[in-house]
Design a protein around this nucleic acid. Structure first.
Lengths: 333, 333
DNA sequence: AAACCCATTGCAAACGTTTGCATAGAGTCT
DNA sequence: AGACTCTATGCAAACGTTTGCAATGGGTTT
């Protein structure tokens, strides 16, 4: 409670043992007699003792910290306004804690270019989880090549040296397409930028399915925000009128932007236009009409990301993983 | 690139100086000749050198890390599904980085009881930002009393030893009330649990205003989730029919839950019932009808939180701060 | 009884920085 | 020329753990 902190040596003295014994006791090392261990642990608790993490990390070369990098495109700033990304971070946080690690939240701005140096060599974290492959994967590859234990959330089917965990975006595109067809749509708009790895897969999955059915798909390449979707749909209705009857949006936020534009012009959803989104954020269920969407299992993804990172910390290699997705049919289609 | 890490001593040798000089040079200490500083910094960059943060923290007793604790009620699990909280975290992250600090994301589960010991004495962070006062403020007070530099996001008007930053919730309640009155509502439902400090203020602000106008306010104490709002409204319509014409929801997510229930039963928003939310999350603008809400300035709040924490790190005392809020009128009212 | 093993514990050397103090050399003042 | 001041650098002692190795002592084997 005062200012004078108790050190391990101090605790050891109180217990009448050496610092080595104290250290081992606190770590539950079976070398130490169970009784002694208990005694020292109790003593530590009574005195509110806690190890100095800095010293511990310095000596043991292990931080027990995992860094999460939000790899945002700063131009488009998908950023913090998309609840999905933050949901992912939240789930990762839980998974990380479950494994006894702590979570250092970073962005590419802070960490600079040399992730290996900053995080690993700099002993800030043992490994890195990158959220958002973005468009430039070279930096991730560089960090991985330099020896950074690393996993990325992104599109698992993309060719990359480092392990990627993500949803089966291609299949997601297919599901959305067949669903729209089933619901009677034949002229479909795709909202999203296929240059982005994950979105590209969704687009191709959708495209293949529609071509097979001889339905037509038109691409409206927009930023990953609801505003740009709103604008794009408005523009589209002005210039060409309502010549589509289905929309596949690359994210739920984008879908909501589109939906708003449609409803403001008295286009009925789902009667005139069916809409399918992607992500299944909390809002999708609670909006009106509620949004049909492709659900990504972020909780499972988070656990997989973390466990694949831990595998690397053990020295083994981890592989990519594709998580199943699921279409959730709601009122918008 | 290989495995053999470069140490400060190594770098110093390469530069032909002592480690002290190298250290000072990297920190831009003016004791060292500008020319030498530059030379060493360049050398460091070429060799991808980065300081060992663990060693540095051990020696300097300073971590340059700020811990953010998500203080969630685990019973109700407002949790990660409310985009607002995560938005706050995101904004704090930016503010923290701007000040050259890093962000350690924690929750009360991980840190245990003794925050002072874990974070400060344990040299994991220099200070703590608590997000969500929750209902039990005793733990926060204990940590603060133990000497933890600390700021909380919550209700600034509440009596507490530690500094609290938050919106003027009382005024927010007033604004919502007068707005609902102006829009013609006279029998208003309040959705939220006033036991929660911030929500209590909103309730009281609202109540005062309505009593003055001799309108009636009914309290529906629910959890902070859209689902419970949805259920509550449904129940209410079933049991008592539509005997209200305005809703003040304690959060936007709650508002959306209510709105969904209403629209499913063909109650028109805003014609039959006007709705006002709180938070101004991204969805509020993009929903249909878009949601009238009380906007909290999270970015400003984040900056204030961080700066008040830094003040404490300097050894000074910080005071509470109440941030202005703003009513944003949209289609739902 | 000597030799050995096992369970516990202690010694002391790292881990890689930062920083108070000492030092060396070059200029300045009297 | 001696006494000083300044500027720029080096020395070495911490910071508080962890951990390989040695040591102690009681019990077991041959």
């Amino acid at each position: 409670m005062t200012g004078n902190k108790l050190t391990l040596a101090g605790l050891a003295k109180l217990a009448g043992v050496s610092t080595s014994t104290a250290s081992r006791a606190l770590h539950n090392n079976p070398l130490i007699k169970a009784e002694t261990r208990q005694r020292i642990q109790d003593l530590a608790k009574t005195h509110n003792f806690s190890l100095n993490a800095a010293a511990s990390r310095l000596r043991s070369q292990k931080t027990n910290v995992i860094a999460v990098i939000l790899n945002l495109d700063y131009e488009t700033e998908q950023s913090i306004d998309d609840p999905f990304l933050l949901k992912v971070v939240g789930d990762i946080n839980q998974a990380v804690n479950q494994q006894g690690y702590e979570l250092l939240l970073s962005n590419s701005r802070m960490a600079g270019e040399d992730w290996y140096g900053y995080f690993v060599a700099g002993r800030r974290a043992d490994g890195v989880i990158v959220v958002g492959q973005g468009k430039q994967q070279t930096q991730i590859e560089r960090a991985f090549a330099a020896g950074t234990p690393l996993v990325a959330w992104g599109d698992p089917s993309s060719e990359s040296d480092y392990p990627v965990v993500g949803s089966d975006n291609f299949r997601g595109g297919q599901l959305a397409a067949t669903h729209l067809l089933e619901k009677g749509a034949g002229r479909i708009l795709f909202l999203g930028d296929p240059d982005h790895a994950e979105i590209g897969e969704r687009y191709r999955g959708c495209l293949g399915e529609l071509e097979a059915a001889e339905a037509c798909l038109e691409l409206l390449p927009i930023d990953l925000t609801s505003e740009s979707a709103y604008r794009a749909i408005n523009l589209r209705l002005q210039s060409a009128g309502l010549n589509f009857d289905g929309v596949f949006a690359c994210s739920d936020m984008v879908a909501f932007g589109a939906m708003k534009a449609l409803k403001e012009r008295y286009v009925s959803v789902p009667n005139d236009v069916r809409i399918v989104g992607f992500d299944n954020i909390a809002m999708a269920e609670v909006s009106y009409p509620s949004l049909t969407t492709i659900a990504q299992n972020t909780r499972m993804a988070a656990q997989s990301l973390v466990s694949k990172l831990l595998i690397q910390l053990e020295g083994d290699k981890a592989c990519a993983e594709q998580l199943p997705i699921e279409l959730i049919c709601r009122q918008s289609s």
